[in-house]
Simulated scan of single mutants.
Amino acid sequence: MPLYDYQCTSCNHQMEKLQKISAPPLTDCPACQAPALQKMLSVPGFRLSGTGWYETDFKTGAKKNLAGGDKAD
């Protein structure tokens, strides 16, 4: 389940909430009880780095060269 950041537009209270993607967004602030919570944009908790995945990573034999022509050695 994703972790969402919320901020109250009334009292500026900030909080995080673990919710299902299908769950409706929260609206009531737990600090001031005003219906003024808004979801904030936040950075994901993971980062993809490195050279990446290639179609040849887990293929063997003749299946290795699917995207391009022959390489000259």
Rank of each mutant, 00 (worst) to 15 (best):
P2Y: 01
P2L: 05
P2I: 05
P2H: 03
L3T: 11
L3H: 06
Y4N: 05
D5Y: 06
Y6I: 02
Y6L: 05
Y6F: 14
Y6V: 01
C8N: 03
C8G: 01
C8R: 04
T9C: 07
T9K: 15
T9P: 00
T9R: 15
S10Y: 02
C11F: 06
N12H: 11
H13D: 01
H13S: 01
H13V: 00
H13R: 01
H13F: 14
Q14S: 14
Q14R: 14
Q14L: 05
M15L: 15
M15P: 00
E16H: 12
K17M: 11
K17Y: 07
L18C: 04
Q19A: 08
Q19L: 14
K20A: 09
K20G: 05
I21A: 11
I21C: 03
I21P: 01
S22N: 10
S22W: 06
S22H: 10
S22A: 14
A23H: 12
P24D: 09
P24E: 12
P24V: 07
P24I: 10
P25C: 08
P25I: 10
L26A: 10
L26N: 03
L26H: 08
L26R: 03
T27I: 14
T27P: 00
D28S: 14
C29W: 01
P30Q: 10
A31D: 13
A31M: 12
A31Y: 06
C32D: 09
C32M: 11
Q33H: 15
Q33C: 11
P35W: 01
P35C: 04
A36M: 10
L37F: 02
L37M: 13
Q38H: 09
Q38N: 11
Q38I: 13
K39P: 10
K39H: 02
K39R: 15
M40Y: 07
M40H: 06
M40E: 13
M40C: 15
M40V: 09
L41R: 15
L41K: 15
S42A: 15
S42M: 13
S42E: 07
S42P: 00
P44D: 12
P44C: 09
P44Y: 04
G45L: 05
F46N: 06
F46W: 12
F46E: 07
R47C: 12
R47K: 15
R47Q: 14
R47V: 15
L48Q: 09
L48H: 05
L48D: 06
S49K: 14
G50M: 09
G50N: 07
G50L: 10
T51Y: 04
T51I: 11
G52E: 03
G52V: 04
W53M: 10
E55T: 04
T56Q: 07
T56W: 05
T56S: 12
D57Q: 11
D57A: 11
F58N: 13
F58Y: 13
T60M: 05
T60W: 03
T60L: 08
G61D: 13
G61V: 05
G61M: 05
A62G: 08
K63Y: 02
K63V: 02
K63N: 12
K64Q: 13
N65K: 13
L66C: 06
L66F: 07
L66P: 00
A67D: 00
A67I: 02
A67L: 13
G68D: 00
G68P: 00
G69T: 00
G69Y: 00
D70S: 08
D70M: 03
D70E: 11
K71A: 04
A72T: 01
D73Y: 09
D73H: 06
D73F: 09
D73E: 13
D73S: 12
D73P: 05
